[in-house]
Simulated assay, not measured.
Amino acid sequence: MPSRAEEIRVAALGLFARLGYEATTMADIGAAVGIRGPSLYKHVASKQDLLAAVMTGTMRELLALHREAVATTDDPAERLRRATEAHVRYHAGHRLEAFVGNREIRSLVPSNRRRVLSLRAEYEKCFRDLVHAGITAGRFHVMSARLASYAILDLGMGVAVWFRADGELTEDIVTWQYGEMALRIVGAT
C-alpha cells in the first residue's frame, strides 16, 4: 500500500497533467486523496514542492535506470542500445511524468528549475558519453555526439505521447525498434 506522501504525489501528478500546475490548487490535491486542503500541509510544504519532487524524482529515476542498463557490458553499441531501451521503456510507462516534466518546467521557481535542469543535463551527458565512447572505439560514425544524444533522447520522450499498452505494438517491440534507431543515428558498425 502506498504511503500517504506517495498518494499525494500521484494525485498531484494527475492533476498537474490534467489541469496544469497553475490551475491546480492544494484543495484539489487534498480532495483527490480525501484530505481537507489545510490538513494537506501536514504532509507537504507546498504545491511547488510537489511539482519539484515529481520532476526531480523523474530525473533521478531515469538516471538510475540508465546506470543499471549500462552496468553489465563494455560494448559501446550494446550500452547505447540498453540505455535507449531503458529510456523508451520509462517513457512508455510514465506518460504523465513525461508530460508534466516537459510542460511545467516554466512553473518551477528558479532554484527548483536549476536543480531539474542540472539533472536533465547530467542525463543527456550520460548519453553523450556513450556516443563519445563509441566514436573513440571506432564503432560509431557521427559528427556530433551532442546532436546524436539529443536526437535519441527526443525520440524516446516522444513515446510518451503516442504509445498505448493496448496499441498495435507491444512495449518490447517499441523498445527494441528504438534501440535499433539509436544505433542507426550514431552510424554504428
Rank of each mutant, 00 (worst) to 15 (best):
A11T: 06
A12F: 00
A12V: 07
L13Q: 00
L13F: 02
L15S: 09
A17N: 12
A17I: 07
R18A: 15
G20P: 02
E22H: 12
A23L: 12
M26L: 15
M26F: 01
G30S: 05
A31N: 11
V33L: 09
G34H: 06
R36V: 09
S39T: 14
Y41H: 13
K42Q: 13
H43I: 06
H43D: 11
H43N: 14
V44C: 05
S46D: 12
S46I: 10
S46Q: 09
K47A: 07
K47E: 06
K47H: 09
K47T: 05
D49K: 12
L51D: 01
A52E: 08
A53N: 10
V54H: 00
T56A: 04
T56D: 04
T56C: 06
T56V: 14
G57S: 05
L63K: 01
L63A: 07
A64L: 11
L65V: 09
L65K: 07
H66Y: 14
H66T: 01
V70E: 00
D75E: 15
P76R: 04
P76F: 01
E78F: 06
L80S: 12
R81H: 11
R82I: 00
T84G: 13
A86D: 06
A86N: 11
A86R: 11
H87W: 08
R89I: 08
R89T: 13
Y90T: 08
Y90P: 05
H91E: 08
L96V: 08
E97M: 14
E97D: 12
F99L: 10
V100L: 04
N102Y: 10
R103Y: 03
R103F: 02
I105W: 04
I105Q: 14
I105P: 03
I105V: 14
I105E: 13
S107P: 03
S107M: 05
L108N: 09
S111Y: 02
N112R: 14
N112I: 00
R113N: 02
R114G: 10
R114W: 14
R115A: 15
R115I: 03
V116C: 08
V116H: 11
L117D: 06
S118N: 13
L119Y: 10
A121L: 09
Y123A: 12
E124F: 05
K125G: 02
K125Q: 15
F127V: 09
D129Y: 06
L130Q: 13
V131W: 02
A133I: 01
A133M: 05
G134Q: 09
